[in-house]
Protein backbone atom coordinates (compact mmCIF):
# COMPACT_ATOMS: atom_id res chain seq x y z
CA UNK A 1 0.00 0.00 0.00
CA UNK A 2 1.25 3.40 -0.91
CA UNK A 3 0.86 6.35 1.38
CA UNK A 4 -2.61 7.89 1.56
CA UNK A 5 -3.32 11.10 -0.30
CA UNK A 6 -5.89 13.73 0.52
CA UNK A 7 -9.34 13.20 -0.97
CA UNK A 8 -10.88 16.37 0.41
CA UNK A 9 -13.03 17.81 3.16
CA UNK A 10 -16.25 16.45 4.55
CA UNK A 11 -18.65 18.71 6.45
CA UNK A 12 -21.56 17.39 8.46
CA UNK A 13 -24.92 19.12 8.83
CA UNK A 14 -27.87 18.30 10.99
CA UNK A 15 -30.81 19.58 9.03
CA UNK A 16 -32.10 20.21 5.56
CA UNK A 17 -32.33 23.99 5.66
CA UNK A 18 -28.72 24.52 6.72
CA UNK A 19 -27.25 22.21 4.10
CA UNK A 20 -29.41 23.74 1.39
CA UNK A 21 -28.13 27.22 2.22
CA UNK A 22 -24.58 25.93 2.59
CA UNK A 23 -24.78 24.29 -0.84
CA UNK A 24 -25.75 27.62 -2.38
CA UNK A 25 -22.70 29.24 -0.84
CA UNK A 26 -20.35 26.51 -2.07
CA UNK A 27 -21.82 26.92 -5.53
CA UNK A 28 -21.39 30.69 -5.41
CA UNK A 29 -17.76 30.30 -4.30
CA UNK A 30 -17.16 28.62 -7.65
CA UNK A 31 -16.28 25.10 -6.55
CA UNK A 32 -16.91 22.43 -9.16
CA UNK A 33 -15.67 19.10 -7.73
CA UNK A 34 -17.96 18.85 -4.78
CA UNK A 35 -21.13 17.09 -3.80
CA UNK A 36 -23.80 16.83 -1.14
CA UNK A 37 -24.70 13.53 0.48
CA UNK A 38 -28.13 13.10 1.95
CA UNK A 39 -30.27 10.19 3.13
CA UNK A 40 -33.02 11.23 0.72
CA UNK A 41 -33.21 13.59 -2.26
CA UNK A 42 -33.74 17.14 -1.02
CA UNK A 43 -36.18 19.24 -2.91
CA UNK A 44 -34.40 22.23 -4.43
CA UNK A 45 -30.88 20.84 -4.01
CA UNK A 46 -30.32 20.56 -7.76
CA UNK A 47 -30.82 24.30 -8.11
CA UNK A 48 -28.82 25.03 -4.97
CA UNK A 49 -25.91 23.09 -6.42
CA UNK A 50 -26.31 24.65 -9.85
CA UNK A 51 -26.70 21.29 -11.55
CA UNK A 52 -27.73 20.79 -15.13
CA UNK A 53 -30.56 18.55 -16.24
CA UNK A 54 -29.47 14.95 -16.76
CA UNK A 55 -29.34 13.48 -20.26
CA UNK A 56 -31.02 10.34 -18.93
CA UNK A 57 -34.38 10.91 -20.69
CA UNK A 58 -32.57 10.69 -24.04
CA UNK A 59 -31.10 7.33 -23.07
CA UNK A 60 -34.59 6.13 -22.18
CA UNK A 61 -35.92 7.39 -25.49
CA UNK A 62 -33.06 5.64 -27.29
CA UNK A 63 -33.87 2.42 -25.45
CA UNK A 64 -37.53 2.66 -26.32
CA UNK A 65 -36.83 3.43 -29.95
CA UNK A 66 -34.48 0.49 -30.17
CA UNK A 67 -37.02 -1.82 -28.49
CA UNK A 68 -39.77 -0.75 -30.86
CA UNK A 69 -37.66 -1.14 -33.99
CA UNK A 70 -36.20 -4.45 -32.86
CA UNK A 71 -39.61 -5.88 -32.04
CA UNK A 72 -41.05 -4.92 -35.42
CA UNK A 73 -38.06 -6.28 -37.31
CA UNK A 74 -38.00 -9.45 -35.22
CA UNK A 75 -41.64 -10.24 -35.86
CA UNK A 76 -41.57 -9.30 -39.52
CA UNK A 77 -38.48 -11.37 -40.17
CA UNK A 78 -39.68 -14.39 -38.21
CA UNK A 79 -43.34 -14.53 -39.24
CA UNK A 80 -43.54 -12.82 -42.62
CA UNK A 81 -40.16 -13.45 -44.19
CA UNK A 82 -38.01 -16.27 -42.83
CA UNK A 83 -40.83 -18.63 -41.93
CA UNK A 84 -44.10 -17.28 -43.32
CA UNK A 85 -47.11 -18.36 -41.30
CA UNK A 86 -50.25 -18.39 -43.36
CA UNK A 87 -53.18 -18.27 -40.94
CA UNK A 88 -56.69 -18.28 -42.43
CA UNK A 89 -55.45 -16.56 -45.56
CA UNK A 90 -54.74 -13.36 -43.63
CA UNK A 91 -51.90 -11.09 -44.70
CA UNK A 92 -48.51 -12.31 -43.52
CA UNK A 93 -47.60 -8.88 -42.21
CA UNK A 94 -50.74 -7.58 -40.48
CA UNK A 95 -49.55 -4.83 -38.17
CA UNK A 96 -52.31 -4.88 -35.49
CA UNK A 97 -51.47 -8.45 -34.51
CA UNK A 98 -47.88 -7.45 -33.91
CA UNK A 99 -48.60 -4.43 -31.73
CA UNK A 100 -48.75 -6.12 -28.29
CA UNK A 101 -45.24 -7.56 -28.51
CA UNK A 102 -43.92 -4.31 -29.98
CA UNK A 103 -45.43 -2.38 -27.11
CA UNK A 104 -43.98 -4.70 -24.49
CA UNK A 105 -40.48 -4.65 -25.94
CA UNK A 106 -40.59 -0.86 -26.25
CA UNK A 107 -41.35 -0.62 -22.54
CA UNK A 108 -38.75 -3.25 -21.66
CA UNK A 109 -35.92 -1.56 -23.51
CA UNK A 110 -36.91 1.88 -22.21
CA UNK A 111 -36.80 0.49 -18.68
CA UNK A 112 -33.36 -0.95 -19.36
CA UNK A 113 -32.36 2.47 -20.64
CA UNK A 114 -33.61 4.11 -17.45
CA UNK A 115 -31.99 1.66 -15.05
CA UNK A 116 -28.68 0.94 -16.76
CA UNK A 117 -28.47 4.52 -17.98
CA UNK A 118 -28.84 5.76 -14.41
CA UNK A 119 -26.16 3.35 -13.20
CA UNK A 120 -23.78 4.30 -15.99
CA UNK A 121 -24.20 8.04 -15.52
CA UNK A 122 -23.78 7.65 -11.77
CA UNK A 123 -20.73 5.45 -12.31
CA UNK A 124 -22.21 2.67 -10.26
CA UNK A 125 -21.33 0.09 -9.16
CA UNK A 126 -18.40 1.77 -7.45
CA UNK A 127 -17.74 -0.38 -4.47
CA UNK A 128 -14.78 1.60 -3.16
CA UNK A 129 -14.90 5.30 -2.54
CA UNK A 130 -12.68 7.44 -0.34
CA UNK A 131 -15.72 8.72 1.58
CA UNK A 132 -16.42 5.21 2.83
CA UNK A 133 -13.29 5.45 4.98
CA UNK A 134 -14.99 8.07 7.13
CA UNK A 135 -16.76 6.66 10.15
CA UNK A 136 -18.96 9.75 10.37
CA UNK A 137 -20.06 9.39 6.76
CA UNK A 138 -21.96 6.21 7.60
CA UNK A 139 -24.81 8.36 8.83
CA UNK A 140 -25.25 9.91 5.38
CA UNK A 141 -27.71 7.14 4.59
CA UNK A 142 -29.62 7.56 7.82
CA UNK A 143 -30.07 10.98 9.36
CA UNK A 144 -27.13 13.30 8.62
CA UNK A 145 -26.32 15.56 5.67
CA UNK A 146 -22.86 16.10 4.22
CA UNK A 147 -20.97 18.32 1.82
CA UNK A 148 -17.74 16.99 0.37
CA UNK A 149 -15.21 19.11 -1.53
CA UNK A 150 -12.51 17.26 -3.40
CA UNK A 151 -8.86 18.24 -3.23
CA UNK A 152 -8.84 17.97 -7.03
CA UNK A 153 -11.01 21.07 -7.28
CA UNK A 154 -9.01 23.93 -8.81
CA UNK A 155 -10.18 26.29 -6.08
CA UNK A 156 -9.27 23.88 -3.32
CA UNK A 157 -6.85 25.23 -0.76
CA UNK A 158 -6.08 23.43 2.46
CA UNK A 159 -6.36 26.54 4.63
CA UNK A 160 -8.82 28.76 2.80
CA UNK A 161 -11.31 26.04 1.97
CA UNK A 162 -11.35 24.93 5.57
CA UNK A 163 -11.91 28.48 6.75
CA UNK A 164 -14.74 28.86 4.26
CA UNK A 165 -16.36 25.58 5.25
CA UNK A 166 -16.29 26.60 8.90
CA UNK A 167 -18.64 29.48 8.14
CA UNK A 168 -21.37 27.25 6.68
CA UNK A 169 -23.06 26.16 9.89
CA UNK A 170 -21.96 22.54 9.82
CA UNK A 171 -21.48 20.57 13.00
CA UNK A 172 -18.19 18.90 12.10
CA UNK A 173 -15.43 19.13 9.51
CA UNK A 174 -12.97 16.38 8.75
CA UNK A 175 -10.37 15.58 6.14
CA UNK A 176 -10.82 12.40 4.15
CA UNK A 177 -7.88 10.48 2.79
CA UNK A 178 -7.73 7.84 0.14
CA UNK A 179 -5.35 5.07 -0.80
CA UNK A 180 -3.91 5.74 -4.19
Amino acid sequence: MSKPSLFGYLVEFEDVTTILNAAREVRDEGYTKWDTHTPFPIHGMDGAMGMKMSILPWLVFGGGFMGCTLAMLLQWWMNAYDYPYLVSGKPLWSIPAFIPVTFELTILFSAFGAFFGMLALNQLPELYHALFTSERFRRATSDRFFISIEAKDPRFDLEKTRAFLETLGGTAIETVEEDE
Binding site: A23, D35, T36, H37, T38, P39, F40, P41, I42, M45, D46, M49, M51, S54, L56, P57, V60, I107, S110, A111, A114, F115, G117, M118, L119, L121, N122, L124, P125, E126, L127, Y128, H129, L131, F132, F137, A140, T141
Partner: peptide, 25 residues
Protein backbone atom coordinates in the same frame (compact mmCIF):
# COMPACT_ATOMS: atom_id res chain seq x y z
CA UNK B 1 -26.12 -1.35 -2.78
CA UNK B 2 -23.52 -0.93 -5.56
CA UNK B 3 -21.55 1.69 -3.65
CA UNK B 4 -24.42 4.13 -3.27
CA UNK B 5 -23.32 7.19 -1.28
CA UNK B 6 -26.39 9.39 -1.37
CA UNK B 7 -24.68 12.02 -3.48
CA UNK B 8 -27.03 14.61 -4.88
CA UNK B 9 -25.52 14.14 -8.31
CA UNK B 10 -26.56 10.51 -7.98
CA UNK B 11 -29.95 11.35 -6.49
CA UNK B 12 -30.69 13.68 -9.39
CA UNK B 13 -30.33 10.94 -11.99
CA UNK B 14 -31.85 8.40 -9.68
CA UNK B 15 -35.03 10.44 -9.27
CA UNK B 16 -35.17 11.04 -13.01
CA UNK B 17 -34.83 7.33 -13.64
CA UNK B 18 -37.47 6.56 -11.03
CA UNK B 19 -39.93 8.99 -12.53
CA UNK B 20 -39.33 7.62 -16.02
CA UNK B 21 -39.68 4.05 -14.82
CA UNK B 22 -42.96 4.98 -13.15
CA UNK B 23 -44.17 6.55 -16.36
CA UNK B 24 -43.19 3.42 -18.28
CA UNK B 25 -44.63 1.01 -15.75
Amino acid sequence: SLGWRGSNRQWHRYERAYLLLAALA
